[in-house]
Design a protein around this nucleic acid. Structure first.
Lengths: 202, 202
DNA sequence: TCTATGACTGATCGCTTGATCAGTCAACAC
DNA sequence: GTGTTGACTGATCAAGCGATCAGTCATAGA
């Protein structure tokens, strides 16, 4: 017997909407995205979207929270603080890079979020995400691996800055490298270079 | 004799509108900003805004072009390639940092622009801005100042990435530094650290 | 079987948006 | 004067927006 209306399993429509929201928000930002377009992308009616989420703003918030949660879970899983410092740092940078690389929509959403979000929210989120990295740098410095003339907080930040920039501006960077004929750098090359900059000179 | 309508010198209203547009665009991005609010900020009527600029998009474009032009002029002025490598690089980083620091609105506008803009436009703009820096790094490397295991294009990019990140996330960075008690880093300290990372280890 | 709950939609509301238009007024050329 | 140009405004338009509401239908507990 044919069903006139597709019956989703519980919570399925909701997830579909969140996915569609990520797609549209990532492309156009909060103000550029229309709830109607998100609903269309998800294949549901626009009132349904507002049935599951109190408002457009609430939906935006849910998408962001999910990304943060995914990221934290992923990093917690990937980073092993018991590895020797070089491996621990390399692994962490690689995990960071891969997480966002595999989620270009989430990455772009986060860029929008940084501009739209409140300063305060931004700060607490950043602190949560930075604290374990700082601790890692600190112990790697104690063991002599990270150069001693660099405050560990700064080492964490600068490593992150360079990976972030590579993710954000890969096309531009390749253009800059092409000027001197240094094309074809891989993700792994970049990580190697970053670690070499941060470690104690031999 | 009192003038019922304030008579601006030629082009004055236009400039006032551009200034107001920078303020509102920087705060809310393209889609978040309303032409009425820009006009209100400028103290003129909204139709006047569209009299001077064909459309909201055209105004956005003019604001962006002006920022790019200002930046290029400023950097051309500030950078002296005839200085010894260390001074040249330090001067350049300092100029870059100061330019954006003194223009927080332009800085924020540029962040929006990177998300809204077309990939293609982004690429050509970036190349114009990066090329002289790469050349500088190249000559600084030839003289032995910049570490030889770093492609000059990458040195330029990583220096830029760290300054950019410092500008973009100063609050977060200070929070990260506070974890290990390394507060109170000045702009000058950051520049010193960046140069030390890039230079040939002694 | 009756009732209640909740996912879901079409129609529509009130508002804001970018843009247009008719018209005013000052400045300037002739 | 006369005419033209261009800066400028109030009124207004059509479109798009987020949100609401009445109503349908399937499910589940009594």
């Amino acid at each position: 017997m044919p069903e006139l209306r597709p019956t989703f399993p519980q919570g399925d429509a909701r997830n579909t909407i969140v996915d569609a929201a990520l797609t549209v928000f990532a492309a156009k930002g909060f103000h550029g995205a229309a709830t109607r377009q998100i609903a269309l992308t998800a294949g549901v009616s626009q009132p349904l979207l507002l049935h599951h989420f109190r408002s457009k703003e609430a939906l935006w918030h849910v998408v962001g929270e999910q990304i943060t949660a995914d990221f934290m879970a992923f990093m917690t899983d990937a980073v092993d603080v018991n590895l020797p410092p070089e491996d621990a740092i390399t692994t962490m940078l690689r995990a960071y890079l891969n997480f966002w690389k595999e989620r270009p929509l989430s990455f772009r959403f986060n860029l929008w979020r940084r501009l739209d979000g409140l300063q305060e929210e931004r700060l607490s989120r950043s602190e949560t995400m930075t604290r374990p990295v700082v601790a890692l740098m600190q112990s790697a410095q104690a063991s002599g691996f990270i150069r001693s003339d660099l405050p560990p907080g700064l080492a964490a930040i600068m490593g992150g800055a360079m990976v972030q920039f590579w993710l954000d501006s890969q096309l531009e960077i390749r253009a800059a490298l092409a000027v001197t004929g240094d094309e074809g750098l891989s993700d792994e090359d970049i990580i190697e270079h970053i670690v070499r900059l941060l470690r104690t000179p031999s």
